[in-house]
Amino acid sequence: MTHYAMVIDLNTCVGCNACMAACAMENQTPVWKNKWRTYVPEKEIGTSEMVRRRFFPHLCNHCDNPPCLTVCPTGATYKRADGIVLIDPDRCMGCRACAMACPYDARYEVTYDDIKVGKEFYGELQRQSPSMDKCSFCAHRLDKGMKPACVETCVGSARQFGDLDNPSDPVTQLVASGVAQPLMPHLGTRPNVYYIDDMKRKG
């Protein structure tokens, strides 16, 4: 069995946003309204000489206990056997309950207008109907044996992708060592995106 997970090393993310661009081109996200499947907010932490910039890439955490799935009234949000949480756009009525339930701010809406603009922006648009949208771990690429677009394009190798059910996978070892931690585990969502904390910030 496969159980996909991602590890993001905050020490090596340089905030180049190449992951955002690669994802946008791969998944045709509505960038014209600043909506991305993955994005990298930056923050200044500290004061005077101690101030430093921090980049924090985030995306759908593909939780094992996803609140977005349990609130979805039509069954548009579903989970594959390999742990990937996906949306069926034809089945999604766009009530936005999933966006309200997601503790990681990973979902955004794609409207009729976005589809119109998207056709001009990307030339040919894969999606036909409006729906909620989010990261799919590039499931279509994984099915072809490729890595997610953001992982492949990351210049600092900050993003690593692997199979938690494979004990020799470096991602599994990072997670097992405790170096990589999930976000807000107290919520019981069991996320599959892990972060290696920013050591500089820890001092």
């Binding site: 609130v71 999604c92 009525m93 309950a97």
Partner: peptide, 28 residues
């Protein structure tokens, strides 16, 4: 709603069998 046609899935009473954990399904 973003996609009005898809509301058909939640109007179908069988929704309670395949999405029993979704309160909007119950509410509808």
């Amino acid at each position: 709603l973003l996609h009005h046609v898809a509301v058909i899935y939640v109007l179908n009473p069988l929704v309670l069998f395949y999405q029993p954990h979704a309160w909007i399904a119950w509410g509808t």
